[in-house]
Design a protein around this nucleic acid. Structure first.
Lengths: 260, 260
DNA sequence: TTAAAAATACCCCCCGGGGGGTATAAAATT
DNA sequence: AATTTTATACCCCCCGGGGGGTATTTTTAA
């Protein structure tokens, strides 16, 4: 795609920002530039289920996985969601940069993320207003190459104009009520905090729930230590206490408890 | 249920052995005696998809999981299937006795088995003829207690008469063509041997495929050493070679390779 | 105010996975 | 006959999870 065509498309996008054609134009732009297997736009709201603004997932099975799981609980452990609900600098991130150190070994990855067959993901985050964050996710599946540094810098540059456009479109479509809010299914994790979630069973302390949350997200003991600025030893103790209180003996079980 | 009633039911079963009522009668017997959440009868044939003779799984969601996954690939790593396709002594087994040492941590357990929500299982195996093995599985779900030693000995005793009856019924219903053969879906593992499966990618040796198979089933390095009667060290070397040849770096990935 | 609970930090141990070597004998290929 | 591959076995290392302690300070509750 020529530089020229990119700018022309941006122009079109600008004109279409309040029309239904917007998503299609913008998706084809991203597809052209990045050859992804998925392009998804979400709006994150703190501790709420994300809004699905648009999705392009040609593989029907994977779309199915996404729709079935992401809005139930998948989003909750999505590193981008995590980033969005903390105070982040807006920007473009590679999944591998923002994911917890043991992300690719954690239960979330094993049980949900890998099912999407996505092997690499780059995404933009941009705050819409006080509590909403727009998120553009561009994914590559098994069989494709990972994103190169060039891809990241291109998306990063492009996002300077793309994200404002997307935000404008989001606001428009939210106002006009045309956003499809995915159904939630029976097994809900959703808005519940870890604390509420887990302390219901047996009083675990707030601090413990904090650590439990990080464990499930795929952070190692030492990573948690770094994050909370306490010694890994302390984290280990908390970990033990959590297991003891919940009467479990592995982080796998912790994940299960959390989801049920 | 009184001793008397048990014998009476056995009599009924005997009379119904060539009728469609058989399964219902026999299921209600098992349900009465063991308070399970699932009762399934399968016929294993070496390296073939099992035949579903009867199933009683009141929970619709779990039935769904079972039907969707078991006949695709779930059976392939089912410890009972494994036992059936080796030369076994007929008999009644607790899952926990026959499962690989790391079964409850292996990918199969995490991805498939746990989804069935089954927390305990006892099952009978009985050879029908040269290549077929009848299998009765009795399962308890989350929320129920595990099976006690008493349950095992009761089923073990009962199976002396129950399995011959079941086999008779199986033969009858196979002959009369009334067995529902579950559909296979897109993602098939099925009859393929590990060897064929994995060597397609990059020649791994037969021995290596043997070890890969055991790894995926959830056997630890040392357990594999015991099984194959070689040193765990040797297993480690094979393991490394497998990973190198397949260009992966964990048994999780091995499982993925195997399924795709 | 005093006792209990929570958060912090350190010690020890074992286990298993993953990655790096080396070596030797048998089997298969050339 | 000579070379390569395969199977065997041992060595070393590091890492992280899980389980067992103990101790100190701070916070919370009684």
């Amino acid at each position: 795609m020529t530089q020229d065509a990119v700018f022309r498309t941006l122009g079109t996008l600008f004109r279409q920002v309040r029309s239904a054609q917007f998503t299609e134009t913008f998706e084809s732009l991203v597809i052209d530039l990045f050859q992804p297997q998925s392009v998804i736009v979400l709006v994150f709201e703190n501790r709420r289920r994300p809004l699905l603004v648009s999705q392009w997932i040609p593989d029907a099975e994977l779309q199915n996985v996404f729709e079935r799981s992401y809005f139930d609980h998948g989003y909750f452990l999505d590193p981008y969601y995590e980033l969005a609900t903390s105070d982040l600098p807006d920007g473009t991130y590679k999944l591998r940069d923002i994911a917890p150190d043991r992300f690719f070994r954690c239960e979330y990855y094993r049980r949900y993320y890998r099912q999407t067959r996505m092997i690499d993901e780059i995404g933009c985050l941009e705050r819409m207003d006080g509590h909403r964050v727009a998120h553009l996710s561009v994914g590559r599946n098994e069989g494709s190459a990972k994103f190169k540094r060039k891809d990241l810098s291109l998306l990063s540059a492009l996002s300077q104009v793309l994200m404002p456009l997307i935000i404008e479109y989001c606001n428009y479509s939210i106002d006009s009520g045309s956003i499809k809010q995915p159904e939630r299914s029976q097994r809900v994790l959703s808005e519940q905090l870890f604390y509420t979630k887990l302390s219901g069973r047996k009083r675990i302390t707030l601090r413990e729930s904090e650590i439990a949350s990080l464990i499930v997200q795929g952070h190692s003991t030492s990573a948690i230590g770094l994050i909370l600025e306490i010694s890994p030893q302390t984290v280990k103790v908390h970990r033990r206490n959590i297991y003891r209180k919940l009467n479990i003996s592995s982080q796998t079980e912790l994940y299960t408890q959390f989801l049920t």
